[in-house]
Design a protein around this nucleic acid. Structure first.
Lengths: 156, 156
DNA sequence: CTAACTGCAAATCATTTGCACGATG
DNA sequence: CATCGTGCAAATGATTTGCAGTTAG
């Protein structure tokens, strides 16, 4: 279940009761909880845990590459501990629920019936991630990357 | 440029100066502005326009299917008026800038060199959208779809 | 004329941050 | 025992909402 704990310990991650609890909550295979849900569940095991600690911890797990962040449009991000097995997501536009799916080939061709979990699939979306030329030049002395995008004379 | 205006008018969309301005700002082909940027630009043409009006208007355009919402992780959503031509996005993890790209076949195979715009591409992400079985049963009398997902005995 | 749209400001929501205290290695 | 993690509460940033006034059709 939680090789996650093992892996983290191996990486010299300082183990505390709250971190352990967060890692346990994220233990399963097809879990996609929001930070708030993680906090709620963690609090069932360790009542005093603070929301901020959960956010911090989740952030670290993401930075370590042990957990993946999934943004479902305007809703709160969800955290996916299944980061070690490549897979795709099927997101419900109504409630934000996520299911892991496993596609191959052209995603725009549709999702195989047995991977739909009863969902009415309306479409697929492909997003490439990377660094633009200017951000790739290293963080630099802070040119203020925050508000820069899309402004100005619009080179697009 | 703005067949968008035409289309909207045709749909019986009540035309007001602020709505016109928002539609104009979204006129181009490769524009990906945040709500705040749309407001800033709109305000250059119509100083009194309120941020809330921009949000409302953008929301309606999205509902009408004339503009697509693009969420770039934790950052503010960006709005893409190019909703009528199917395409994918290349997002900069540094500053959130978006470029439209045009892939075919298996996205996990990588993005052709000439579509990278100088970006250092680190990966692709595929997300299917749809409605889960319970949300598909219609909005209903409001069973409270907001916080429901991911809670409970975890059917996953 | 009347329903629909605006503006403004206050309200939410998700997430982050500053700082003093406590626990780990 | 020094460092790193935690809790709390307040700060932020994005987006929404309530309500009275204005306007398109």
């Amino acid at each position: 279940m939680s090789d996650l704990l093992e892996r983290l310990r191996g990486r010299g991650w300082r183990m505390t009761s709250q971190r352990r609890v967060v890692a346990e909550v994220l233990g399963g295979e097809h879990v996609h909880l929001t930070a708030d849900e993680v906090h709620a569940r963690a609090a069932r095991l360790l009542p005093e845990i603070a929301r901020a600690t959960v956010y911090n911890t989740l952030g670290e797990l993401v930075a370590l590459g042990e957990v993946a962040e999934v943004s479902t449009d305007g809703r709160a991000k969800r955290y996916d501990p299944n980061a070690h097995h490549p897979h795709q997501h099927l997101v419900c536009s109504g409630c934000g629920t996520i299911r892991d799916v496993h596609m191959t080939g052209d995603p725009l061709a549709g999702l195989p019936q047995e991977q739909r979990f009863g969902f009415t699939v309306s479409g697929a979306e492909v997003t490439y991630r990377g660094l633009c030329p200017s951000c790739a030049r290293g963080p630099g002395p802070d040119p203020g990357p925050s508000r820069a995008a899309g402004e100005g004379p619009e080179p697009a």
